[in-house]
Amino acid sequence: MATVKFKYKGEEKEVDISKIKKVWRVGKMISFTWDEGGGKTGRGAVSEKDAPKELLQMLEKQ
């Protein structure tokens, strides 16, 4: 499965696309949330040019 790689608060992170729940556009950035388990929700953002095609497809479906 595809993953999204991004930096959050200076830390490199990687999230499996299948865990992503919500995707939206903020200017030229793609923001998203995912389920971290245990009732926690993670947040992240990646530039439109660095976003994997699967993430962009999720954005178009909404």
Rank of each mutant, 00 (worst) to 15 (best):
A2L: 06
W34Y: 12
E54H: 06
R43G: 09
F32P: 00
K28N: 09
K53T: 13
R43A: 07
F32I: 04
M29W: 15
V23P: 02
G38I: 07
Q62R: 03
S31I: 07
E14F: 03
L59M: 07
F32Q: 00
K7W: 09
M1W: 12
V23S: 04
A45E: 15
Q62V: 06
W34F: 07
G42Y: 14
W24V: 03
V46W: 01
I30V: 09
V4W: 01
A45W: 14
G39T: 09
K61Y: 13
S47G: 14
A51S: 07
E54V: 08
E36G: 04
G27M: 14
M29A: 14
T33G: 04
L59G: 03
E36C: 14
V15Q: 02
Q62A: 15
E11L: 08
E60H: 08
T33E: 09
E54G: 05
G37S: 08
R25L: 08
Y8R: 01
K22G: 14
G10K: 02
W24M: 08
P52W: 01
K40L: 12
V26E: 07
V4K: 00
E14R: 03
G44M: 05
I30E: 00
I30T: 02
Y8M: 02
T33L: 05
D50Y: 08
I17E: 02
G27R: 10
K21C: 15
G10H: 03
F32W: 01
Y8S: 03
Q57R: 07
Y8Q: 03
E54N: 04
I17D: 01
E60T: 11
Q57P: 04
V4P: 01
Q57N: 09
G10F: 02
K40T: 12
E36M: 15
A51L: 04
E12D: 10
M58S: 06
K5Y: 02
S47H: 14
M29C: 15
E60V: 12
G37V: 10
R43I: 11
L56I: 14
G37W: 12
R43V: 13
E48H: 05
K21P: 03
M29L: 11
I20S: 00
Y8V: 05
K21Y: 15
I30P: 00
A45N: 14
G44H: 06
L56W: 12
F32H: 00
T33D: 06
G39R: 08
F32Y: 00
V26D: 06
G38W: 08
A51Q: 03
K28A: 04
M1K: 10
L59S: 10
G44W: 14
K7E: 04
S47Q: 11
W24K: 03
G42M: 12
V4M: 02
E14L: 04
I17G: 02
K28G: 14
S47A: 14
G27P: 11
V23Y: 11
E48Y: 10
G38Y: 04
T33K: 15
I17T: 04
A45M: 09
A45L: 07
L55E: 00
V23W: 06
K22T: 14
W34V: 02
K49T: 09
I20E: 00
F32T: 01
S47D: 13
D50W: 13
T3R: 09
S31N: 08
A2K: 05
K49N: 10
K61Q: 09
K53M: 12
T3W: 02
V46Y: 01
M1I: 13
G42W: 15
R43P: 08
W24T: 02
R25I: 12
D16Y: 09
I17H: 02
M58C: 14
M1F: 13
K21L: 14
E36S: 11
K21E: 11
V4R: 00
M1T: 08
L59R: 03
G10W: 01
S31K: 08
K13H: 09
G42P: 11
Q57M: 14
K9H: 14
S18F: 15
T33V: 10
S47Y: 10
I30H: 01
V23H: 02
L59K: 02
Q62W: 04
E14N: 04
S47C: 14
T33S: 14
F32A: 05
F6S: 02
Q62H: 12
D50A: 08
T41P: 07
V4G: 00
K61L: 14
A45R: 11
K13C: 06
E12H: 07
L59V: 10
F6P: 01
K49R: 07
K7S: 05
F32V: 04
D16A: 14
W24Y: 15
G38C: 15
F6G: 01
S31A: 05
I17R: 02
G38V: 08
R25A: 09
S31T: 09
I30A: 02
G44P: 00
G44C: 11
K7F: 06
K21S: 10
Q57F: 12
S47W: 05
D50K: 04
V15F: 01
R43Q: 12
F6I: 04
K40Q: 15
K21Q: 15
E48L: 06
T33I: 13
M58F: 04
K40E: 12
S18A: 12
M58R: 06
G42V: 07
I20Q: 00
A51N: 02
E48W: 05
G10P: 00
L59T: 07
K49Y: 12
T33C: 15
K61E: 10
K9I: 02
G38F: 12
K5S: 02
L56R: 09
E60I: 12
